[in-house]
Each structure stands twice: as structure tokens, then as C-alpha cells.
Computed example of a mutant assay.
Amino acid sequence: MGTAQADRLRAFIDKEARAAGFDAVAVASAQAAPSKAGELGHFLREGRHGTMQWMEETADRRAHPRDLWPEVRSVIMLGMNYGPEEDPLSVLGKKSRAAISVYARNRDYHDVIKGRLKQIAGKLAARTGQDVKVFVDTAPVMEKPLARQAGLGWQGKHTNLVSREFGSWLFLGSIFTTAELEPDDPERDHCGSCRACLDICPTNAFPAPYQLDARRCISYLTIEHKGQIPHEFRAAMGNRIYGCDDCLAVCPWNKFARHAAEARLQARHDLNEPELAALLALDDAAFRAFFSGSPVKRIGRDRFVRNALIAAGNSGDATLGRHCEALLADPSPLVRGAAVWALSRLLDAGAFASLEARLRPLEKDAEVEAEWRTRP
């Protein structure tokens, strides 16, 4: 492909990406393995992926784009800004309200982005005659290292992508193609001596800069972890009930970030700072209806209410006690156990002892019964 032809093709890709609503686009060669492939192996060997067994099962295909698709020659990395309108950390001081991660306050970004990627990929295939495949997070693609390699940003000390233009708030998607495209220059690390993301983490989830132990991460605990939240992390969770934005929100590079332009990525008003009392009252049908189209829906009602109960226990709001007490009769042991813990924090010793004497003998689940025995 001649220089002029290559320039025209790149201009076409950039134009189509912008027309589809993407804020950043760059190209990486599929020849070189992502720079973090070795670190993924260390992460897995240390067991830092927790119960995310799929990461171990797909590790070989993640190591190199050609292990996923041998014919790929170029990877087009695209980013869509989802910058919040308000400081995501401000809700943390409102203990009777819930903190939901910025990315989950409206439509599932997978649904928003994948269709746009297919639109661009289809036009690229028609123009070049080359094959294409699109990926958004759910496939074994090392998106953040590839985005760094393409020049969209760099992986900060919190392991997430940071952009000089968009800060921490970029959703990533990729188009793999058999077309030979001129790669962009990789982005260098601009973190310097800053430790803001490491120091703010409530659960000390970073063993060292550029390393994450997911087992200690509130995002993992509230989204991926299926059992009771380990006691050592419950108080630190505060009112974070789905994900955690602390390490992202505190990044100094966010001073250059802009608000999300895509309407479906802008926060729903009722998901900005929802009241815990309302969330504790959700049964399965109401949960599904309220979170229809949201990524929150995938964890299911029981895990979600578990998280809300932890937040209630941390709230210091005694008026939430009646909502928690109602959940002691919930069909889910996961919910009942979290309700016991929340009440042990909200009630005075006498009231809790009275409740325990009345209800603990009726409990049939060993893990829930253990919650009665364990005091905060």
C-alpha cells in the first residue's frame, strides 16, 4: 500500500470513528505482544484474580493478538469518553445513599459500543476487502496494553488506562483486521512520582505500583465475588455498592477530562445517588426492572442487595434497621447473612441480642448462623 493510499485509509478510519461517536482512535501492530503479557502471568500465578477463573482459562489467548486470531495484522483501538458531570467521590460522604461506579449509571457500555464498532468494521471491510473482527471487553483481548501500544494512553499505577486528554474515563473497544495499517507511536508513562491512586484505595488493593490484587478490590468484591464479603473489607466498602471509582477519580490527569457526549453513557438521575432504603426493598422483579439495560443487572438481585446491606451497616442510619430486619426472612442465605451483619452495626447491643435470641435458632444455613456469632 502506497503512502498516499495509506494516508487516505487512515483518514477514512478516523472519520468513521468520529462519526460513530468515538473520541479517540489509534492503531497498534498485531506483530508485537502487549507489553503487560508477562505481568498477567504473574498476576495469575499469585492468585490475584480470585474467583475469576475465566482469566486463567483464556490466558494463552490473551498473550498475543495472533493467539486469538492468527491472521490479524493490525489492531484499531477506539475509546469513548464517559467522563462524569460531578465528582464521583462526593457521594461517599452521604452514608444513607449508595455509590454506584460511574460506568454503570446508565446503559451497559458493551451494548453501546459493540454496534458502533461493527458499523466501522463493516465499512472498513467493504473499502479494503480485508477481514475484520470486533471486541469489547468480553473477549480475551489485552485492551489496556494494546491501547497503550497504540498511543491512546498509558497504564497508570492503578493498572487502568490514563489519557492525557480524557483522564481515566475511556471505554475501550477494538477492531482486529487483516489489513496492514501504519501503527501509531506508543504513549509513554506520565505518572511520575504521583501515588494518589495507590494511597486512596480503601482496601489496600495495590501490593506495589502497577500491580493489583483483585481479591482486595471493591470492584471485584461487589461485582465478581459471589459469596459473603470477607469481614476485613466490609467497613472499608463504605457505601460503595457496585464498583469503586476512588483510584480513577483521584487521578490528576482528570483535570483535562470532559463530560460524556453519548447520552446513553450519561448518568441516570436515579442512579447518581440512590437511597439505600429504596434499594433494600427491591425484590427480584423490581431489581430487574430498575436495572434493565444496566450492567448492574448481571450480578443479580441477591448479590446487589448483599452489597446494599453492607452499605446500610456502614451508614450509621438507624432508620435503615427496619429494612435490614425485613431481609432476615429473605429466601437467599447471602442476603440473610449480610442483613445480620448490618443489624449488628445499626442496633444497640440489647436490641441485637433480643433479635438474635428470637431468630438465630430458626436459621438453617451454617454461613448465616456464623454471622450471628461474629461481631463487627
Rank of each mutant, 00 (worst) to 15 (best):
F12W: 09
D14S: 14
A17T: 14
R18V: 02
A20V: 08
G21D: 00
V27Q: 03
V27H: 06
S29L: 04
S35C: 09
A37M: 05
G38V: 06
H42P: 00
L44Q: 05
R45K: 13
R45M: 08
G47E: 05
R48N: 14
H49G: 12
M52F: 02
W54L: 02
T58C: 01
R61F: 08
R62M: 15
R66I: 09
D67N: 15
L68N: 00
V75F: 08
L78W: 03
P84Q: 05
G93S: 13
N106S: 13
D111K: 14
L117S: 02
L117G: 03
K118H: 11
G122N: 05
L124I: 13
A126H: 08
Q130T: 08
D131F: 02
F135E: 07
A147Q: 11
W154K: 11
W154Q: 10
T159K: 07
V162R: 12
S168F: 04
L170H: 01
F171G: 07
L172H: 00
G173T: 07
G173K: 10
T178H: 11
E182F: 01
P183G: 08
G192S: 04
R195K: 09
C197P: 11
C201P: 07
A205N: 07
F206R: 05
F206T: 10
Q211F: 05
D213W: 09
A214T: 01
Y220S: 02
I223M: 11
P230G: 01
D245Q: 12
A249H: 06
V250N: 03
V250A: 03
R258G: 07
A261E: 13
L265V: 06
R268P: 00
R268M: 05
F291Q: 10
G293M: 07
G293H: 10
R298A: 10
R306H: 08
L309M: 06
A311C: 05
D317Y: 00
A326W: 11
D330Y: 08
P333T: 14
G337C: 05
W341F: 07
G350N: 13
F352A: 14
R360P: 01
D365T: 15
A366G: 03
R375K: 07
